[in-house]
C-alpha cells in the first residue's frame, strides 16, 4: 500500500533522512521508532506530500506522491505532529471544512461523514466548542477525527498518543487496532510499550538511516531477556 524507496532529505548541511526504504501492506500497523530528531517526522511529511524529497520515491497504492500529489493525498489520512487545527473554529465547523475539501459536497453525506468521525473519536461532548478551548487530549482527537474522516485506505499518524492520559492512549490504540484490518497504518512514537501493544512491524531510524525493520518478536530476539528500551538504546547509540 505504502512503498518508500531511498528517501533523502537534506536541510542545509544536515541530512535529516538518508536513504530510508520500507513498505507497508494493508493490515500492517507499522511502528516507526527513533530518537527525537532522527527523521521520523520528515519521512512522514515526504510520504504525505508536504515536503518534496531530494531523492527517492514514496508511492501510495502505486501512485508516486511527487507525480500526482492530489490523488495520493486523497488516499491518505494524516495526523501531523501536535495535531494542528484552526483554533477559532468549532470542532464541527472544522470537520465540515475537512469533509468539504475531501469532496463530500452534498449536505447529507457530509453530515454522515462528520458524525461518524465524531462518534469514532468520542468528540460528541465538545462538538460545538471552539478548538482553542479544548484540552490537549481533545485537540489530539480532533486531529485524529480529521485524519479518519474520509475512511482512507492508508493512515499516517505522527505521534498519535502524544499528550494523552493513559486511558485515552489505550482508547486510541484500540481504535487504531480495530481499523487496521483493512488499512495500512504508519505510526511514529517514542513510547516503546506501544510497539508491543499494537504494532505488527517495527522500523527503527537513527540519524536518518534505518537500523531495524522487523516484527516486534524479532526485535526482542536480538537480545533475549533484555528490555525493549535496552535494545532500542543499543540500536540508536550513534544518535546520542
Amino acid at each position: 500500500m505504502i512503498e518508500v524507496k531511498g528517501l533523502v532529505k537534506t536541510y542545509g548541511a544536515k541530512r535529516a533522512v538518508d536513504g530510508v526504504s520500507f513498505t507497508v501492506r494493508r493490515g500492517d500497523i507499522l511502528g516507526f521508532l527513533g530518537p527525537n530528531g532522527a527523521g521520523k517526522s520528515t519521512t512522514m511529511k515526504m510520504i504525505t506530500g508536504f515536503l518534496r524529497p531530494d531523492a527517492g520515491t514514496a508511492t501510495v497504492d502505486g501512485i508516486d506522491v511527487t507525480a500526482d500529489p492530489v490523488t495520493v493525498k486523497r488516499k491518505l489520512g494524516y495526523l501531523p505532529e501536535s495535531a494542528p487545527a484552526y483554533p477559532e473554529m468549532t470542532v464541527e465547523e472544522f470537520l465540515h471544512f475537512i469533509a468539504e475539501v475531501r469532496g463530500f459536497k452534498s449536505g447529507d453525506t457530509r453530515n454522515a461523514q462528520v458524525d461518524r468521525a465524531i462518534t469514532l473519536t468520542h468528540l460528541a461532548p465538545v462538538r460545538a466548542q471552539t478548538i482553542e478551548t479544548l484540552s490537549k487530549g481533545f485537540k489530539q482527537r480532533v486531529g485524529f477525527a480529521q485524519a479518519l474522516l474520509h475512511d482512507p485506505p492508508a493512515l499516517v499518524l505522527d505521534e498519535p498518543t502524544d499528550g494523552l492520559d493513559p486511558n485515552q492512549k489505550n482508547e486510541v490504540r484500540t481504535l487504531i487496532k480495530s481499523m487496521a484490518t483493512e488499512k495500512a497504518v504508519i505510526l511514529s512514537t517514542h513510547i516503546l510499550e506501544e510497539v508491543d501493544a499494537i504494532c505488527t512491524r517495527v522500523i527503527i531510524i537513527s540519524r536518518g538511516k534505518l537500523v531495524a525493520d522487523e516484527t516486534p518478536a524479532q526485535l526482542r530476539s536480538r537480545q533475549p531477556g533484555a528490555r525493549l528500551d535496552e535494545i532500542f538504546r543499543s540500536l540508536t547509540r550513534g544518535d546520542i
Binding site: K45, T48, G49, F50, P69, V70, T71, K73, R74, L76, Y78, P80, S82, P84, A85, Y86, P87, I98, V101, R102, G103, Q146
Partner: peptide, 14 residues
C-alpha cells in the same frame, strides 16, 4: 505559525 499549513497542504488540493 500555527502549523495548519501542513494540514492544508496534505489535503487533496493544489
Amino acid at each position: 505559525r500555527s502549523g495548519t499549513v501542513e494540514l492544508l497542504f496534505t489535503l487533496p488540493i493544489t
